[in-house]
Amino acid sequence: MIIVEHPESHAGRGWRLGRVVVHVTLAVVCLFYLLPLYVMVVTALKPMAEIRAGHLLALPAAPTLAPWAAAWSTACTGLSCDGLAPGFWNSVRILVPSVLLSVAIASLNGYVLAFWRMRGSQVLFAVLIFGAFIPYQVLLYPMVMLLRGLGIYGDLTGLVLVHVLLGLPILTLLFRNFFAGLPPDLIHAARIDGAGFWGVFLRVLMPLSAPVCAVALMLQVTGIWNDFLFGIVFARPETYPMTVQLNNIVNATQGVRLYNVDMAATLLTGLVPLMVYVVAGRLFLRGLLSGAVRG
């Protein structure tokens, strides 16, 4: 952590008033963001009887984890009653290969674009940047045809392919810019020292890339985990990711609406990106602080 000490000379009256206004504003904004979360957490811990009593903000009188268990393994989607669990495992099976593949390919792309000038590399780079700004809706139908042609429409493989392809432009840009910012002499030195194409990449550049890898991981994990659009378009009920499963549970309209189960299911679904922020966020900060490349 960096602790910035405020110089004494700034401690005038107007300055102090300004600080108060800033802090009050921040506190209000925090409340605004935290209140819905609070409501979700307490609701998920209440039995249905308590919820029907109507005290939205009250703490649970008899806290229970039953809604969480139900959300995980028995909540109904209207077709089946297996809870979120199948969706969770589908999401994991989509997430892990998508993230690993897209980061691996994008870092390699970025390396080539940053250091190995070839004919047309500038054009390729421009096209990649353009690719990062294409609205996904435009791609949906062609993608369906492509996946059907490949015979993987509805499979997890198809979904992984879509995520990898659509993640590549922005990730490649990220890695290229990071590598281009490194001193060229570092690569020169490595080449003099006899490192080849892969040696420079794997033994000199990648060990320096922790900060940019953390950024890429955060982008990809949250993006892919939270994806709903591709999940619902490119998957079948057996291959639905967790987000689609969550939607189906929450929107199933048979019998009583189980608010506590819905809330627990939503929180469970949000847990993975949250953990990524906590873990990779630290890595990211550490990378930024210790990343003295010149030296």
């Binding site: 001193p183 002499d185 570092l186 020169h188 030195a189 490595a190 080449r191 003099i192 020292d193 006899g194 490192a195 080849g196 000199v204 320096l208 003295a292 490349v293 010149r294 030296g295």
Partner: peptide, 17 residues
């Protein structure tokens, strides 16, 4: 460059951090 039988020293040191 790695096969030319040379060693090189750079202004920016270019050590592997």
């Amino acid at each position: 460059p790695g096969r030319r039988g040379i060693g090189m020293v750079f202004q920016s040191y270019a050590l592997y951090p």
